[in-house]
Simulated scan of single mutants.
Amino acid sequence: MANDNTRDIERAWELMKKIGFAMLVTHDGDKLRARPMAAYVDRDADAVYFLSDARRHKDDEIKRNPNVNLSFADASDQKYVSVSGTAAVSNDRAKIKELFTASAKAWWDSAEDPNIRVLKFTPDDAEFWDSPGTVISYVKMAAAAVTGTRPDIGTNRKVAI
């Protein structure tokens, strides 16, 4: 069982890294807010990092309530991961420089921009859905509909990370 759990944990990390973008869900008072973010998945650090702009509300929301959710989705390949955990906002300039890539230039001119912050997400648990892909899933669903059985369209696991 421990082997299966370890394999499931690793698969959750692999899927997060492969998908690369997440909807970051924060608390804004009684409401939930989600926005797409480029994820820097660092399995060795057991963390997911994001670059954020201090002028946006998500940093304030995280400071008020650090419990957040990340939702990764690759609908074309039928792979999904939902991860719950805590986030922290920092002004770690070395980490900002490390994470700053060409795609970050769409938002900031350089890593020296004083408005850039790092969000560090530490996961507690994850749930993933890992299907063999859209075409195979549709074929299995059609076959199940014809035979009156339930389709086996992949793996769904919950793991503590």
Results as ranks from 00 to 15, higher is better:
residue 129 W to T: 00
residue 1 M to P: 07
residue 6 T to R: 13
residue 146 V to R: 12
residue 161 I to W: 04
residue 116 I to K: 00
residue 58 K to E: 07
residue 114 P to V: 02
residue 110 S to Y: 03
residue 87 A to H: 08
residue 120 K to P: 01
residue 66 P to I: 06
residue 82 S to T: 15
residue 147 T to M: 07
residue 93 R to A: 12
residue 69 N to H: 14
residue 28 D to M: 11
residue 78 Q to M: 10
residue 31 K to G: 10
residue 161 I to R: 07
residue 74 D to Y: 07
residue 28 D to P: 04
residue 149 T to A: 12
residue 16 M to S: 09
residue 64 R to K: 15
residue 149 T to G: 06
residue 152 D to I: 05
residue 100 F to A: 05
residue 118 V to K: 01
residue 13 W to Q: 00
residue 53 D to V: 02
residue 63 K to E: 14
residue 159 V to P: 02
residue 136 I to K: 15
residue 52 S to Q: 06
residue 92 D to T: 12
residue 123 P to L: 02
residue 91 N to P: 03
residue 133 G to W: 06
residue 9 I to W: 08
residue 112 E to M: 00
residue 35 R to V: 10
residue 56 R to T: 07
residue 160 A to P: 03
residue 121 F to A: 05
residue 136 I to A: 14
residue 96 I to E: 04
residue 109 D to Y: 08
residue 60 D to L: 05
residue 57 H to V: 09
residue 103 S to V: 15
residue 79 K to F: 04
residue 30 D to W: 05
residue 4 D to H: 12
residue 93 R to W: 09
residue 62 I to R: 02
residue 93 R to D: 12
residue 16 M to N: 02
residue 155 T to M: 08
residue 82 S to L: 11
residue 141 M to W: 14
residue 37 M to P: 07
residue 93 R to P: 06
residue 23 M to F: 14
residue 42 D to C: 08
residue 106 A to W: 06
residue 137 S to L: 04
residue 12 A to M: 10
residue 147 T to F: 09
residue 114 P to K: 03
residue 119 L to Y: 01
residue 43 R to W: 02
residue 74 D to T: 11
residue 157 R to S: 10
residue 141 M to P: 06
residue 127 E to F: 06
residue 24 L to A: 09
residue 31 K to A: 12
residue 138 Y to S: 09
residue 15 L to C: 05
residue 4 D to G: 08
residue 10 E to K: 11
residue 65 N to P: 10
residue 87 A to K: 08
residue 95 K to I: 13
residue 139 V to A: 14
residue 152 D to W: 02
residue 88 A to M: 09
residue 28 D to L: 06
residue 52 S to D: 05
residue 36 P to D: 07
residue 123 P to N: 03
residue 114 P to L: 01
residue 83 V to S: 13
residue 20 G to H: 06
residue 54 A to F: 07
residue 153 I to K: 06
residue 79 K to C: 15
residue 59 D to A: 14
residue 122 T to Q: 09
residue 71 S to N: 14
residue 135 V to H: 07
residue 35 R to Y: 08
residue 2 A to E: 15
residue 24 L to Q: 08
residue 122 T to H: 00
residue 41 V to P: 01
residue 133 G to T: 10
residue 141 M to A: 13
residue 113 D to N: 08
residue 120 K to Y: 02
residue 100 F to G: 03
residue 118 V to R: 00
residue 60 D to W: 03
residue 116 I to Q: 04
residue 160 A to S: 12
residue 6 T to K: 07
residue 54 A to Q: 11
residue 69 N to P: 05
residue 140 K to W: 04
residue 159 V to W: 06
